[in-house]
Design a protein around this nucleic acid. Structure first.
Lengths: 204, 204
DNA sequence: TTTTGATTTAATCGTTTGTTTAAATCAAAA
DNA sequence: TTTTGATTTAAACAAACGATTAAATCAAAA
């Protein structure tokens, strides 16, 4: 009973994750999720009280997946700034190669829910107070780069990594490539992005 | 009569643009649009046949705005590669400072409509066959940069420019800044991004 | 076996939402 | 002024959708 419980609940959650990620909250219909999970519509409301409740769970777990790999890699005190850079890029591209819809999903839903989601997991703390953040500020001080450029560099770093997944249809069109070739390009970026970030740093 | 026609039709289209841009197709309700336009609900179907039809018009005009400034700047044969780079970045950041929701809107709707929209305005032609594209390939040849890196460079260039607007809530949170300060940062990027792109090119 | 509580289903309810209809209003032409 | 056609509105329809209900099923405990 218990094992089947978990299985059904997980099955619904996995289906909800898939449908919410690809269609967004407003575009996802409870009947779509039920069909995707292979269950009756009423089961969805039996396990989770409502569409909203189910969505909150999916959103929370998605953001956890998305920011947790960042946070853990950012706070390893053993590794150098350069190594952490490579590790984070590697983690992200690996994660997004399996679930490429995550960034667009998060950004889209944030536009409807501007403050609430950002505050829940306070990204500012994760980024600024992390070992990585401190190492980066130290390096900027060494190179006489003004403090306010910190945000620019974070934007560049995350943008170079995440943007291709957000703009995947356009990228595939411009490069005239399929999904496999797109993933190959992203694998290449694991080594290229750290080089580019360093080049940007040196140019400032 | 005629002048009032146009005025009402434009008023509806402007309202639709605003609501579609911020809520997406599925999240936008025809009643929201009617209220935003200050008109009766039935008027929407009187001027435009349906929600879908109205959406198609908004989407077409939005993509035209978004890619046309690109295309025209890309195909000026007078300007050098470096100057074109600066002009395109400047155009884009100016446009997006006024309508920051456009990129997220386009990307979100593409996920529901993968092929149709990309094919309509064939971005590949605009980018690859443009003077800018040819100048870039020439420069890459001079620097012995392998051809397949072309897509990487385009991703970097557009990503550095567009991504901050897509991730605006997160950027504002990380930088602990308000909308005005965000726009200031974007103004700075008008001069910074061309420098960074050159730094990236030199590192390859 | 019978009982009990959890799980699953079919059917339906009430609201939202896109669209239509029929009538009212208005501005210009006759 | 009357007429005509375009414009606008109030009201309602029909389908989609989120949620609930009541009954059926099933697995384990008594």
């Amino acid at each position: 009973m218990e094992s089947n419980d978990k299985s059904t609940e997980e099955k619904i959650k996995a289906a909800a994750r898939k449908v919410f990620h690809t269609k967004g909250f407003a575009g996802a219909k409870t009947r779509d999720i039920a069909e995707e999970a292979g269950i009756n519509l009423a089961l969805l409301n039996y396990y989770f009280r409502s569409k909203e409740k189910l969505f909150e769970i999916v959103m929370f777990e998605t953001m956890r997946d998305f920011f947790q790999s960042l946070a853990s890699a950012f706070n390893n005190p053993e590794t150098s700034f350069e190594l952490k850079l490579s590790l984070v890029v590697d983690n992200y591209i690996t994660l997004l190669s399996h679930e490429p819809e995550i960034p667009l999903f998060i950004m889209s839903e944030m536009r409807s829910n501007p403050t609430l989601l950002v505050e829940k997991m306070n990204i500012r703390e994760v980024v600024i107070n992390s070992v990585f953040g401190q190492q980066m500020k130290f390096m900027m001080a060494q190179k006489n780069i003004p403090e306010h450029k910190f945000v620019h560099l974070i934007m560049n770093f995350i943008g170079l990594t995440v943007f291709p997944f957000v703009a995947r249809p356009i990228v595939k069109s411009i490069g005239n490539i399929n999904d496999d070739q797109f993933n190959e390009l992203m694998q290449e970026r694991k080594t290229l992005i750290p080089l580019w970030v360093k080049a940007i740093l040196d140019s400032m």
